[in-house]
């Protein structure tokens, strides 16, 4: 299960597993973000290309609007996925 929780201005916590079964729900939640935010991934266990697609679409939209996503608390699995997909070039990422 995947969930997204807004904690305070500019910070969003991602939780659970960001897989293809969660894509539509996740996209709807990310579509509500309209400013630069820091995504706390310390409770995000897993991501696949479906999750990457949602993050990429959101990042492109925010960059066009003058904002951006920053990822913090990234575990080793997420770090590998971001590295192999080239996402470490387009997101500011801090390890967990």
């Amino acid at each position: 299960m995947f969930d997204l929780e807004r904690r305070e201005a500019g910070e969003v916590v991602l939780k659970g597993r960001f897989d293809a079964a969660q894509r539509e729900k996740a996209q709807a939640l990310f579509d509500e973000i309209h400013e630069s935010v820091t995504l706390d991934c310390s409770e995000l266990d897993y991501i696949s290309s479906a999750g990457l697609g949602v993050l990429l679409k959101t990042q492109k939209r925010l960059l066009a609007e003058g904002g951006r996503l920053k990822l913090i608390g990234v575990n080793s699995h997420l770090r590998d996925v971001f590295k192999y997909s080239g996402f470490d070039r387009i997101f500011e990422i801090e390890p967990g």
Binding site: S48, S49, A50, L52, L56, K60, G86
Partner: peptide, 10 residues
């Protein structure tokens, strides 16, 4: 980033 597409990433 403008040219990136998630298609094929899987």
């Amino acid at each position: 980033v403008e040219e990136l597409d998630p298609g094929g990433l899987g």
